[in-house]
């Protein structure tokens, strides 16, 4: 009841925070896709680089998010962006790398060599094989990586409110500070709903992305 009351009172702010949250996560994911997918493709041709890149991305993943945010602040304050959405976005981009790179790498590696052979045999160039054969077949797996990255970013994005990035986490931290239970619950539940909802929607898209020929009947 308390929660309902809070929402009716603050629905405008809630929508703004929701928008901020989506914005941070959205920007971070777009950057992460434009960096992670090419890196994933690149390392699928270079075994040594693959080992190193996946290892580094794995380490970044294990670094606790609040610690990474903490580390981002002094690093980015050199460029004058210590607080706010920039360190948040940078940290989210770093986190999102592992699932995206790993899935891209695995998906491209998993394309049956015979199919690639067939493509080359038909006179495709290496880049045509990549664009017309490997990537379309790998698409749904890459997207699955993006899905994991997005859901994870929504959760970590909530923590970013503490370094002034805004978003739904704002309610959680402010609620904790003021011991205002309704505010905490609204913040926490809306983040949870956002994560679950996005996961569900992306799940639907992921299924549609599987080429009809590859779908299991």
């Amino acid at each position: 009841m308390e929660i309902w009351h809070f929402i009716t009172q603050n629905w405008r702010e809630l929508i703004t925070l929701f928008g901020e949250h989506a914005y941070i996560v959205g920007i971070a994911i777009i950057i992460a896709i434009f960096t992670g997918v090419p890196i994933g493709i690149w390392i699928s041709f270079n075994k040594k680089a693959a080992e190193i890149v996946l290892y580094i991305a794995g380490i970044i993943m294990t670094v606790p998010s609040i610690a990474l945010f903490g580390i981002m602040i002094p690093v980015l304050s050199i460029f004058g962006h210590g607080i706010g959405s920039v360190p948040a976005v940078v940290a989210l981009v770093l986190y999102a790398q592992l699932p995206i790179i790993r899935n891209t790498y695995a998906a491209i590696k998993n394309v049956n060599p015979n199919i690639i052979d067939a493509g080359v045999g038909m006179g495709m160039t290496r880049s045509q094989v990549l664009l017309k054969v490997q990537l379309p077949m790998a698409l749904s797996i890459i997207f699955a990586g993006v899905r994991v990255a997005v859901v994870m970013s929504i959760g970590i994005g909530a923590i970013a409110a503490y370094i002034g990035a805004g978003g739904l986490g704002h309610y959680i931290f402010m609620g904790i500070n003021q011991t205002y239970d309704a505010m905490i619950k609204v913040g926490a539940i809306s983040v949870a709903i956002m994560a679950i909802g996005v996961d569900y929607i992306f799940g639907l898209i992921e299924n549609r992305l599987v080429s009809k020929g590859l779908r299991l009947s």
């Binding site: 929504i154 959680i172 609620g175 619950k185 926490a188 539940i189 983040v191 949870a192």
Partner: peptide
């Protein structure tokens, strides 16, 4: 998929 911060906050 529920964020950790949400779990902690709600527990509190």
């Amino acid at each position: 998929t529920v964020p950790s911060l949400a779990v902690i906050a709600i527990s509190m």
